[in-house]
Design a protein around this nucleic acid. Structure first.
Length: 348
DNA sequence: TCTTGGGGTACGCAGGGCTC
DNA sequence: GAGCCCTGCGTACCCCAAGA
């Protein structure tokens, strides 16, 4: 029968890192809510003040990409893309449907479900206008309508007439360009694998903030509840009791694993005046351990933000006091949370 | 032999109600 | 606030038949 998820408790175990591109990862594609229909249509301004747009249009025939499609993208396709090296090839071999099932830890009988989920991913269209800074420091813009990849199943033919001996994806040029140019950041692949979908998405979204909090020795990281809902395609509530209940279930695996030591909520409102909450995340031993190992393992910079701070000598010599300290902390939070302005939540 | 597709059934998880 | 229990939807598993 279905194996129960087991969230690893030991922070001392070595991590199995996966480096994922960080520019499109923050935008949602998959529908993680179990009920209802949420349109993913996000407009706003990024931290440099530029307007951005992210709209997802699922296929009418194959339906919305959901939990399984999300797993496929995050656990299998991201892995293949990473293994392909720095310059991504246009065609990537995934393996047979049964091999994909095995790799995801599922029974081989679910191959038809995998096929359906691959089709959902391949047929989901994206309308985007997003700016990002490439690894070379050059600012780039993705603007247009595209899907991320096409899929060729075993026995089907490529455009050159060759018959596919396994399942392949063909990367769309727009998506491939992002993969080739965008920066990456590490995640613990084994941890991703054991988390339920919403907890996995939470980990993907908040890990830069958690790393930043550890790096700058802050007591906790902050992330807004509204952003979590918008960027996870989850139901957004406006009543505290419902919010805490919903988030309690998302946080449980992270608290059990030791990734988070404590979680607290601070009431606020979004730009529309709708009730919102800052989620305070105190990093646990696993988060500290991840940070140490990821910092040592590679020369890549972790995706944290270097905040402006007064130097120690300035602090000692000058006026600083509790006010300056408070100012620094407020500034840090603004930088760390990226302060994305979202004019409104997506249509229900 | 390997892979795919379909149908039936059981399970997991988000969401909701409720208690302590 | 934390946690238990229930519901309903989506997913996972199992089995078997068919095709390459």
């Amino acid at each position: 029968m279905k194996p129960k998820r087991q969230v690893r408790k030991s922070a001392a175990l070595p991590f199995n890192p996966i480096r994922v591109e960080r520019e499109l990862l923050r935008f949602p594609i998959h529908h993680l809510a179990k009920r209802g229909i949420l349109n993913i249509d996000i407009r706003g301004k990024d931290k440099t003040g530029k307007e951005f747009r992210w709209r997802v249009s699922p296929s009418r025939n194959y339906g919305e990409p959901r939990e399984l499609a999300y797993k496929l993208d995050t656990l299998l396709i991201n892995r293949r893309i990473e293994e392909a090296g720095r310059s991504k090839p246009k065609v990537i071999r995934l393996g047979s449907l049964r091999a994909i099932c095995r790799e995801l830890g599922l029974s081989e009988g679910c191959s038809s479900d995998i096929k359906e989920a691959l089709r959902q991913n391949a047929h989901t269209g994206i309308t985007a206008k997003v700016s990002y800074q490439g690894q070379d420091g050059v600012e780039r813009t993705i603007e247009g309508d595209f899907n991320r990849y096409s899929v060729i199943f075993t026995g089907e033919r490529f455009s050159n007439g060759r018959k596919a001996d396994a399942v392949y994806i063909i990367l769309n040029d727009v998506y491939r360009e992002v993969l080739n140019n965008a920066g990456t950041r590490p995640l613990d692949y084994d941890y991703l694998k054991v988390l339920p979908p919403t907890a996995q998405r939470f980990y993907e979204l908040v890990s830069p903030q958690v790393f930043a909090a550890i790096k700058h020795k802050l007591p906790f990281a902050k992330y807004t509840y509204s952003n979590f809902c918008i960027y996870s395609a989850l139901t957004r509530y406006t009543i505290a009791k419902q919010v805490k209940k919903q988030m309690y279930k998302v946080m449980q695996p992270h608290k059990r694993s030791g990734y988070l030591e404590a979680v607290a909520f601070e009431e606020t409102v979004d730009s529309d005046g709708t009730p919102d909450w800052w989620i305070h995340l105190t990093p646990g031993e696993k988060a500290h351990s991840e940070f140490r190992q990821f910092s040592q393992r590679t020369n890549h910079s972790l995706e944290t933000h270097e905040p402006f701070l007064l130097s120690g000598s300035e602090l000692e010599a000058g006026t600083p006091s509790a006010d300056v300290e408070q100012f620094q902390y407020n500034l840090l939070w603004d930088i760390i949370t990226e302060a994305i302005e979202l004019p409104s939540e997506p249509d229900p």
